[in-house]
Amino acid sequence: MSTVALSRPATLPSSKAAHAIFHRLTHNVGQVIHGKAEVIRLAVIALVAKGHLLLEDVPGVGKTTLARALARSIGGTFRRIQFTSDLLPSDILGVSVWNEETRHFEFKPGPIFANVVLADEINRTTPRTQSSLLEAMSEGRVSVDHHTYTLAQPFLVIATQNPLEHFGTYPLPESQMDRFLLRLRMGYPERADERRVVARPTDADPVESIHPVVSSEEVFALQRAALAVRVEESLLDYAERVVAETRRSSLLMLGVSPRGFQSWYRAAQARALSEGRDYCVPDDLRELAVPALAHRVVLASASGGYGEPLGRGREEAERVLQSLLERVPMP
């Protein structure tokens, strides 16, 4: 919360310290989720860049575990919302109930009031409910009955959707997709990692075994430090050209929006920090281009519409983006 930031003078951690915090976080989460270092890192990057994650994958690959482990590692609260077709906005945001004693309406916060929120199968609910969540994500606060409530900070939403099912789903509209900083795929674990998970000798919740390693203050410091990461002019030029390519390409109906551009930029800054740098390098942009941009473009071939598995359009979009990236020379 902003009050925290005010109470502590804004001294930015050195890039080494930032790297150490990053390392602690990823390492801690990595104890629970094996062999997914890259996904964990991107999740932390999303947290540091004050963005949100969209995980697209089949059930049972550890999306929930990731979210819970991350929440626990930063010592924050965790809520999970299972999205169904009959979910209402108030089920997410909270409701005002009549208190007989005080004779006032009293606000009962919904599950959104947590540091890490897992929005499971977000495409199963109605657009109305989806948008209530997404509004909260971008604004950092919710409005219920003429009152505005500020959400907890740090605040990270990890939404998941199943790319294969399409029956009874409401795919997120483009404007909503744009609000996610990164879109990731968990992917199946490596063979050895999978064996280790399956053959675990205990049935205790692995997440319970880890402890908070990073304080909220440290997360805020990281978030501030990320904003100060230096992006050299030629890198910005490069990013600008890539964005312009997506807008110009005949293969795409919709290119990257200015917000998308900014998300990419911020994510690259956070990534630089994750490697202990206070400056961006081409790799930061390059590696994050697909996770940060692919879900923001709309293919001209109009696939991925209703009644078609999400996955196919997604792969196509990633391929198009990849080919665009290869066309723009690196600085």
């Binding site: 390098v281 290869e326 690196m330």
Partner: peptide
């Protein structure tokens, strides 16, 4: 070096 491949890659 491939087109659009970064030095790190």
């Amino acid at each position: 070096q491939r087109p659009a491949e970064t030095l790190r890659q």
